[in-house]
Computed example of a mutant assay.
Amino acid sequence: MQTDMPLAELLTHLDRLAQQSLALWEMPPNARARLINVSENATYLVEADGGYKSVLRIHREQYHTRRAIECELAWITALKEAKAVVTPDAYSGKDGEIIQEARIDGLENPRFMVLFEFVEGVQPDEAGDLEGPFEELGEIAALTHEQSKLWPRPANFERLVWNVDTVFGDTPNWGNWRDAPNVTPEIATVLEAVEVRIRARLDAFGAGKDRYGLIHADMRLANLLTGPGGTRLIDFDDCGFGWFLYDFATGISFMEDDPRVPALKAAWVRGYEKMRPLSDVEKAEIDTFVMLRRMALLAWIGSHIEAPEPQAMAADFARVTAELGADWLAKTPTQG
């Protein structure tokens, strides 16, 4: 949530905006919003007497246009209609519009907002056995990719792109990895070589329709909720166009150095192939996407350093990224 305003001050304004904006939807008059997550957006749990719950998302300024948010919600609806995955519904406001817009003194511009159904459920425990959850995650990923290939998208469909240019190019989605904390000259030398090899391999790999399309792009266990109604995939805010295998890489975000990753990759592939085959060439490229994602996350830490999560990870993230990169370079030729 990049802004020139200190985070504490920004959150004070956003809290006032959240409380004020609840009146845009039909809900109990005593409803209150409580901040539960800050990343690209500010996410609030809305609660009221009688057990009412919903989830309010206040969008980051200038991250998505109204049309891009409309396209996200259209894909969520299409996935549900195709019975590909179960996702939380979004509520229309009193004016009949799902996307609401409001402003408040202290913030220069208005913000887009969406109110989602609250889903009972728990996230898989990262400290526990993750092979089962990753197998399920692979199956869910394959279902979304199959629907993505077949779905006739609405006209003027607008979403983010997650490819080499939007990670490494002149206007990257999350900034330049070189600007991240603790990227020393020695680390930069390794990561420059990693970038060059990622570019070469993915240029050779190609972006055919069987490999590249509309993806969730943030398919972490934190976005998987298991509850009485089954397993639900949440938070499509980063969905956009990218390689299908990038969804595995997003699944292990921030834990790429975990010794369980090879087993988790095998479990994900096992689940994926229940619904959709993967060629040997595709399987061989999975680790390239892991490095692409890791480099994107390094950039993300640099461009979001005002938030608590990036601050907590910043000390060692560049060093570990270079260690992962050096290991990947040693075992990965320039082209597959």
Rank of each mutant, 00 (worst) to 15 (best):
P28G: 11
V55C: 04
L56Y: 07
A84R: 02
D95S: 13
R260D: 03
G208Q: 13
A318M: 07
L35A: 08
A42P: 10
T288Y: 12
A102N: 14
A314S: 15
W75H: 00
L292W: 01
N156I: 02
E309D: 08
A299S: 11
E126V: 07
F205E: 14
L79C: 12
V55T: 03
Y44W: 09
Q62G: 06
Q20R: 01
F116K: 03
V261E: 07
A82C: 11
M113E: 03
T189Q: 12
K94S: 12
D179F: 02
S253R: 08
P29K: 13
D235K: 01
A155N: 10
D203G: 06
T231R: 14
I99R: 00
E126G: 01
P133T: 06
T250V: 08
R276W: 11
L324V: 05
A217N: 09
L14A: 07
W177F: 12
A82R: 15
G251W: 14
C239I: 04
A33D: 00
L17M: 08
I187W: 03
N173E: 10
Q62P: 03
D237P: 01
N176V: 09
D237R: 00
G51L: 11
A102Y: 02
F236E: 01
G271N: 07
K149Y: 02
D247P: 06
D238T: 02
S148Y: 13
H304E: 11
T65Q: 06
D238E: 06
L324D: 00
E97S: 03
V196C: 10
S92I: 00
E131F: 05
D287I: 05
L225S: 08
R34L: 05
A90C: 08
T65L: 04
F116I: 00
L11F: 06
S279P: 14
D327K: 11
N182F: 14
A207Y: 02
R293E: 08
C239S: 15
L11C: 07
D238Q: 02
A314Y: 15
D129F: 09
L10N: 03
V55P: 02
I301G: 09
I76M: 09
G121C: 04
R34G: 05
A48W: 12
R60G: 04
K53T: 03
R211S: 13
L292K: 14
G213R: 02
L225N: 04
R32D: 11
N182C: 06
A48M: 11
K209Q: 14
V38T: 15
G229S: 08
A141Y: 01
V85T: 08
L202A: 00
E70F: 00
P6K: 13
R103M: 06
D258V: 07
